[in-house]
Simulated assay, not measured.
Amino acid sequence: MIKQRLKTGLRWVLAVFYAFAGYMHIVAPAPFLTIMPDAIPYAEAIVFWTGIAEIVGAIALVQPFNLRLRQAGGIGLALYALCVWPANINHLMMDLAREDGGLGLAYHIPRMIAQPFIIWWALWAGDVRIGRRA
């Protein structure tokens, strides 16, 4: 019982994080546009639609009675975190190349290390079972 409540609470924490990030992608896209690699076309549209994807994924993740929808949300948010990793790496390289050193390694290294954890968290929170039947 306590384990399930903890999992539900952590599911909601992740969902709120993603919903807020999605909202920010839509209402204040400038910071996200600055870290997009130059090779990515249609950056404004991508930032907008990734915001929508984060919000939809967050909503799906917290569905209490629809396991398949919750799993789809977890998979979608995990894939999203994987797909934005290149933008995070680009941000690290651009930021550290600044004369003032930007935000520095103390910001970027934990962020890079956190990415695999966030991917795992989305799958775990979404009750995704890999390699075994649910």
Rank of each mutant, 00 (worst) to 15 (best):
I2N: 09
K3P: 03
Q4K: 10
K7S: 05
T8A: 13
G9W: 15
L10I: 14
W12S: 13
V13T: 15
V16D: 11
F20G: 03
F20W: 13
F20I: 13
G22F: 00
M24P: 00
M24W: 00
I26T: 07
A28T: 13
P29M: 03
L33A: 06
I35K: 07
D38A: 15
I40E: 01
Y42S: 09
Y42C: 04
T50E: 10
A53T: 13
A53G: 11
E54M: 15
V56M: 06
A58F: 02
V62A: 11
F65N: 14
F65D: 10
R70K: 15
Q71F: 14
A72I: 13
A72L: 12
G73L: 07
G73A: 11
G74L: 11
I75T: 07
G76R: 03
A81T: 04
W85D: 08
W85L: 13
P86I: 05
P86E: 05
P86D: 02
N88R: 09
N88H: 14
N88F: 12
I89W: 06
R98N: 00
E99W: 14
D100Q: 08
G101Q: 11
L103Q: 06
I113V: 15
Q115S: 03
P116H: 10
F117C: 08
W120D: 01
W120C: 04
G126I: 00
G126N: 03
R129N: 01
R129Q: 00
R129W: 00
G131N: 00
